[in-house]
Design a protein around this nucleic acid. Structure first.
Lengths: 236, 236
DNA sequence: CAGTGGTCTAGACCACCGC
DNA sequence: CGGTGGTCTAGACCACTGG
């Protein structure tokens, strides 16, 4: 593990263990440098990481402060694939409805840069949170990259398997959100009424080398759809 | 303007002007270093910025590549307050429905760390995109920070005024998303049916020093609600 | 194994905040 | 004006990719 990741982790752990609140001040850079026996750039890099994650914010001429958000029970839109993080106390399960090799839909082919004749793994799941339906998920995996899947893998964390089992490196993703009304089929899976509000999240996942390997469409039950997002304005 | 920002801007401009597509390779680091007469760290910092903005992705041992998303007409959830960026071709206007100094709601007070007796500027606007209703927006500004507002300011970009007119530095924001159904009042403003799907986005905006100065609730017309989001998985 | 990006250091100097 | 974070450099060395 890299030094700056290590430092970032320790600082984050320190914040959690001491239950520091929004606005509380962390030790100054000099202290952190000697404490972790690292150069200024390295410590700064750790802090930039934490800032990107929404854990701290830095104020020039003043100090480094803890950043917290107040609300519980929200799903972080960015702690990508595998909510896990913000819903630690919640119980998440999945029902696998379908798992097979097939040809992609036109939309899936377009998003994965595939031909209609190429093979994809198709996975359809319903996800539950504390026993209530959370979402319906359909995923298309480029079979030439994700070469094997089975029911066991698919009922657990597919992404962990892709990372550890297949040794692939997941890079970045593009997400598209739409609000609409549930179709009869979706309503059925989610145990809701047809025409109820829904949020569709379509995501294209890429490897670190830029290859798209997964296109997924997730339809959220609006009653469980509380999402959270942290932004930094210094992008311009 | 800082050197690394300058470099980032020029690289971005270069990509736009030459209409580089997803996956196209940029010059190698050495070239960029000499081209911009900058050290490796500085160029790297520029590229990290662009990576955060979703403009490029870097692959160790291989190169620096252009990142693009395919879909047009989506509102970027992160290019914070002031869509402007992704909707450049669209025509955006506002109707100011209400502008006054008042006491905050309990919710607004909580999110702005204010007392119920403190003063806030309250702004209510309907926003249009190409003549169609896009959203209904209610904002509460901490009056001890945003000391003055008038109809003219409020019908243009409030955030530009805060930055340039008041000289305040906007830092980060926390966003909370909910899906639901339009109330009669909301439907009326948006020209929709009561009970139609909606997306509510509540945002708390902070200055760079961490002080919250604006709490806003934006209710989107679901027919116009197409959002876009780019994520980087290397956060862990 | 050559090419290319990533990490880390030490140190100089700059820019901002708040007393 | 002292304290603190931010920028920038030069250079050593590491780690990954792809032919």
């Amino acid at each position: 593990m890299l030094k700056y990741q290590q430092i970032a982790e320790e600082i984050e752990k320190y914040i959690e263990e001491n239950e520091l609140q929004q606005g509380e001040k962390l030790p100054v850079l000099d202290t952190l440098m000697s404490q972790f026996d690292a150069s200024k750039s390295t410590v700064t890099k750790s802090l930039d990481l934490l800032e990107k994650k929404g854990v701290v914010f830095q104020v020039r001429g003043s100090g480094i402060f803890v950043r917290r958000h107040k609300r519980k029970g929200y799903i972080s839109l960015l702690s990508n694939q595998g909510f896990k993080k913000d819903l630690e106390e919640s119980h998440l399960t999945s029902d696998v409805i379908e798992l097979k090799v097939r040809k992609p839909t036109a939309e899936a082919a377009r998003n994965l840069n595939l031909e209609l004749a190429d093979d994809v793994y198709y996975v359809k799941r319903v996800r539950y949170i504390n026993g209530q339906t959370l979402c319906l998920e359909e995923s298309f995996f480029n079979k030439s990259i994700v070469t094997y899947l089975n029911k066991e893998i698919v009922s657990e964390s597919i992404f962990n398997y892709i990372r550890e089992g297949l040794g692939l490196k997941i890079g970045f993703s593009d997400m598209y959100l739409h609000v609409g009304m549930l179709t009869a089929m979706e309503a059925d899976y989610l145990g809701m009424e047809e025409g109820a509000p829904k949020l569709d999240v379509e995501t294209v996942f890429h490897l670190t080398n830029g290859q798209p390997f997964d296109f997924s469409i997730v339809t959220y039950n609006y009653e469980q759809s509380q999402f959270f997002l942290q932004a930094n304005s210094q992008l311009l």
